[in-house]
Design a protein around this nucleic acid. Structure first.
Length: 422
RNA sequence: GUGAGUGUAGCUCAGUCGGUAGAGCUCCAGACUGUGGAUCUGGCUGUCGUGGGUUCGAAUCCCACCACUCACCCCA
């Protein structure tokens, strides 16, 4: 059979078995994040194009060549390539800064799809999903460290063991221009010894030369000035306090002056968590501080810190025994047409009591029903035949142990473990 | 945007020198009319990615296109 239509390039279907794993991850994120005071925020998938050109940055790859933009009426809109800008926009639009008391920032998290028009490869789709969180109104280093600590707990909770935390500071409006200048001055006379990509980076976004993958370039760049040596006093102090707090938490990390993020709004702290099992796209998550973003979007000077996790990447790293689909509680095996009819009402009563029930859509041979019960991973088979209906006692078989007992209907719900999800 | 690899059944894959389509798994039925997983027997499913070319004849050779995969780039 040839499908008449298929999923567009870079998008894919998450089928039920895998969706169960997504739900597991999302549930763990909500549970952990809410312990730290984060509440969910939901923002639109489409935003004014200007939101991203202003925040993410005109010169970034995301804005220059990866956005799904189109005109709707007279305005240009864009499918969001990330959500931090949306959260900041909503924050300004609803004057949420008025709810912030000094020392008590607003914390929000989101889960949803993002869109970037890139060439798909391992760990990279055109529609992908992020779990992210933002903490707005805290300039203190504890906001950075505590949020990173929360992420570490979250990764623990879902069993991600192969991970490395790297942190850096990219300075702020006071010290970054100076560093940038020093770096460009250092690069100028060495351009002909660098690869083509690095020569382009030197022009467009000099800090990015540090994550070049060419070995010769990396060696040469060891001699380049590093941002950590040129931080201003405020940025240095902030970074050192973040590191001290991570030490106090006992979270292992590597300070790496080569970590540079691709979005213009980052200042001071930036960080990533890397894994070796992801192929070339090695980042599970990334984030940092953006103290100027809210103001850039027309709001008051409210500092921010946040991160985004790649959901697909996370799910692919999770141990295979996590987040398996829930099985059925009971399969109603009916013997003969009259019993099958009677089982319809029985199934309704059990479901109303919160039991997960499966049964066939028509009377079927018993062998076929029991095979099906195995397939849907039912814990019990409930036998319904004429003698059971007459006596009001049903045969209940534990499909794992093979033990069978006779149970009255009023005792069934307790035996089957009803009230799921309540 | 650049480069390389791969497209055969629902899934994983064989298919020799160009000779007319195969296995395992899954699914369905039966063995087995009130007790499943195992086993055995039988059965269903293909525009061989698409279009063109060469040839008596193409899954196989050639060209183009499409999709997927991996890498560059970039990022989650």
């Amino acid at each position: 059979m040839k499908p008449r239509c298929q999923a567009v390039r870079g998008t894919r279907d998450v089928l039920p078995d895998e969706a169960a794993r997504w739900q597991y991850v999302e549930g763990a994120a909500r549970s952990v994040f809410e312990r730290y005071g984060f509440r969910e925020i939901r923002t639109p998938l489409i935003e004014p194009t200007e939101l991203f050109t202003r925040s993410v940055g005109e010169a970034t790859d995301i804005v220059r060549k990866e956005m799904y933009s189109f005109s709707a009426g007279s305005e240009s809109v864009t499918l969001r390539p990330e959500a931090t800008a949306s959260v900041a926009r909503a924050f300004v639009e609803h004057s949420l800064h008025r709810t912030i008391a000094a020392g008590f920032p607003e914390r929000v998290y989101y889960i949803g799809p993002m869109f970037r028009y890139e060439r798909p490869q391992k760990g990279r789709q055109r529609q992908f999903h992020q779990i992210g969180a933002e903490i707005l109104g805290a300039k203190e280093p504890l906001a950075d460290a505590e949020t990173i600590e929360m992420l570490w707990s979250f990764l623990d909770a879902i069993g991600i063991e192969d991970r490395e935390l790297v942190v850096n500071s990219v300075g702020d409006a006071r010290c970054r221009p100076g560093f940038r200048e020093a770096l460009v001055r250092w690069l100028e006379p060495r351009l002909d010894r660098l690869c083509e990509d690095c020569r382009r980076r030197a022009r467009e976004n000099p800090l990015r030369v540090f994550d070049c993958k060419v070995e010769a370039d990396r060696e040469l760049l060891l001699g380049a000035p590093t941002i950590l040596d040129l931080l201003c006093g405020g940025c240095r102090e902030h970074f050192e306090e973040v590191c001290r707090t991570l030490d106090a938490y006992g979270i292992p990390y590597r300070a790496d002056s080569r970590i540079v993020r691709g979005l213009d709004y980052y200042e001071r702290t930036v960080f990533e968590v890397l894994s070796r099992d992801l192929g070339a796209q090695s980042a599970i998550l990334g984030g940092g501080r953006y103290d100027g973003l809210v103001e850039d979007l027309g709001g008051p000077a409210v500092p921010g810190f946040g991160f985004a996790i790649g959901l697909e990447r996370l799910v692919s790293l999770m141990p295979g025994d996590r987040g398996l689909p829930a099985g059925t509680d009971v399969f109603v095996v009916s013997l003969g047409e009259p019993a099958w009819r009677a089982s319809i009402a029985l199934a309704r009563r059990l479901r109303a009591a919160g039991v997960r029930v499966a049964m066939p859509m028509s009377s079927r041979p018993m062998g076929a029903q029991l095979k099906r019960a195995d397939r849907v991973r039912a814990r019990f088979a409930l036998f319904v035949g004429e003698s059971e209906i007459a006596s009001g006692r049903y045969g209940l078989k534990d499909l794992a142990t093979g033990e069978q007992s006779s149970v009255q209907e009023k005792d069934l719900v307790a035996r089957l473990g009803g009230r799921h999800g309540e």
